[in-house]
Design a protein around this nucleic acid. Structure first.
Length: 113
DNA sequence: CCCCTGACACTGG
DNA sequence: TCCAGTGCCAGGG
């Protein structure tokens, strides 16, 4: 595997720290890792996160709160089900009250990593 | 090595 | 939180 896994691991580290019932965005994670313009890479990392059972990929959405990645889950609406099971309201692939449950790594996480 | 694609974000309209 | 266009980095063919 490529050395880029290092970047992937960082993404996983942050993703794993997302609290129950909260969500964050690809861009937020990317920015936290010092790669603000590499939000796509976060998505790519999530793609590979299927090997990691501990990664709550369903808690990561785009900046609008849209479940753009639901397509990559087993079921058509599995991602939504997972979020709803955490008390997150989802309508038409969009997280309701997104700004309220949004989890900002900069605010909630210490400056490690 | 070149070209396309991708679970995104930003800017201008 | 529209829409279209552009930039970004990395992987795969």
């Amino acid at each position: 595997m490529p050395k880029s896994e290092n970047f992937f691991e960082k993404v996983y580290e942050v993703a794993k720290k997302i609290p129950f019932g909260r969500v964050t965005s690809y861009g937020a994670i990317a920015k936290y890792l010092g790669a603000a313009r590499s939000a796509r890479m976060v998505g790519w990392a999530m793609n590979a996160s299927h090997n990691n059972q501990e990664i709550p990929a369903h808690r990561v959405v785009n900046r609008k709160g849209l479940l753009t990645g639901k397509h990559h889950f087993d079921g058509t609406n599995l991602m939504q089900q997972l979020l709803e099971s955490e008390g997150i309201e989802v309508v038409e692939n969009q997280i309701q009250n997104f700004s309220a449950i949004f989890w900002d790594p900069f605010k909630e996480l210490p400056n490690n990593l």
